[in-house]
Design a protein around this nucleic acid. Sequence first.
DNA 1: ACCTGAACACCGTTCAAGT
DNA 2: ACCTGAACACCGTTCAAGT
Lengths: 230, 230
Amino acid sequence: MATRNPFQPKPVTSRRGGPAKAPLSQEAIVKSAFALLVEGGIEAMTLRKVATALETGAASLYAYVDGLEELEALVADHALAEVRTTWPKKDPWRKRLVALLESYGKVLMQTPGVAQLALRTIAIGPNALRVLDALLGILDEGGVDRPTAAWAADLFMLYVTAIAAEQTERKKRPAPLGHVTRALSLVTPEQYPHIHAAGAELTSGPGPTRFTWALDVLIAGVLGNPRKKG
Amino acid sequence: MATRNPFQPKPVTSRRGGPAKAPLSQEAIVKSAFALLVEGGIEAMTLRKVATALETGAASLYAYVDGLEELEALVADHALAEVRTTWPKKDPWRKRLVALLESYGKVLMQTPGVAQLALRTIAIGPNALRVLDALLGILDEGGVDRPTAAWAADLFMLYVTAIAAEQTERKKRPAPLGHVTRALSLVTPEQYPHIHAAGAELTSGPGPTRFTWALDVLIAGVLGNPRKKG
DNA sequence: ACCTGAACACCGTTCAAGT
DNA sequence: ACCTGAACACCGTTCAAGT
């Protein structure tokens, strides 16, 4: 990825008197890729399809993007633009913490594939950093010491990303989660006594209640396990 | 996947007087796929390469495996055979809980790609069920009520899988995690004040200490947040 | 029923050639 | 510097044909 100024696009040369073709740019590529992701999920986001949507050949994209892996990282961060990181100052820190994580989870959940991308790319884009910074800020206000906050922020984000990935993964299957439910209901008490005993409890949720419960667990656990006593 | 008895392989017809070719079977396919995964990571595990290793065409595999997705699920569960689920009865439940999760994490960590597979397939194979059952059993002995244990087991396994996926993902990059470290160190205090302040704390670890801390957090959180008061 | 070769419909990436 | 077409080296899956 060379150094370029995306805010100064080259003049457009219109072809055959038709509408001017928007010039290629990293931003256009990322937006187009994200649109494909929204429409058709993660496997619809290919370099060739992005190129077709932009009326070029796949090779042309390499002037703006290093390859598929970089594009995935850019798209993941692009999606995180929707995550809200500011709230009224009067809100208590814990409320803001939950709101931030819920916003993050919602963004990951609403477009299938984003969570998978976030899970496999290293989150160092501007939006990922903005979310992380906000998270650290809230924990700091909550009196969590810095070493603990650093690990806790990672734990929170990793868990929310993982649960979002898990849930969106399930969604694309034919039977939303009847697959699991059926498999678990067929379990005999001899083979797996505890699974059998747990029964429907295992698959109840995962709804908002379950997500909220998990956040409560993480928060309580973090508050009770400071790395630095204070 | 038709119903077959893999324990009664067809008689082998040796070709050209050479060594007899092992007959195709789901087990042979899964083992071969796992070997490719161990050797070359997740992208080395392709149907075509499995077929080549087994001296057939890719089409032949479809008699035993529904497709790549099913193969991935089978391989993931195959890998989990290594997870230890039994300990001396005298060990306290909490020690056994940590040992189980550490064994699970170790298995996912030692062969890159397994965690990614576990994350994208629904875990209903015999080994996944064995681990889940053991987990539920330990929590039960720890006095955790059933509804809480059901959600907690899911939370534990999801978190360990996610952290294993994250760490093995990082490992295959050129600079193990210097990438992240460098990116975070370049952050200015104006842009991201809290990230800047946290500094090296963010990237310290993730070692065994961090993993253990996370488990402590989860366990404490679960014990403090029962769904059923008791 | 199992196995096969060949074909189909895709991929990401590279590269010489253009402008 | 940017863009292109064509080629390279792969994919998963299907299918008619064999045994």
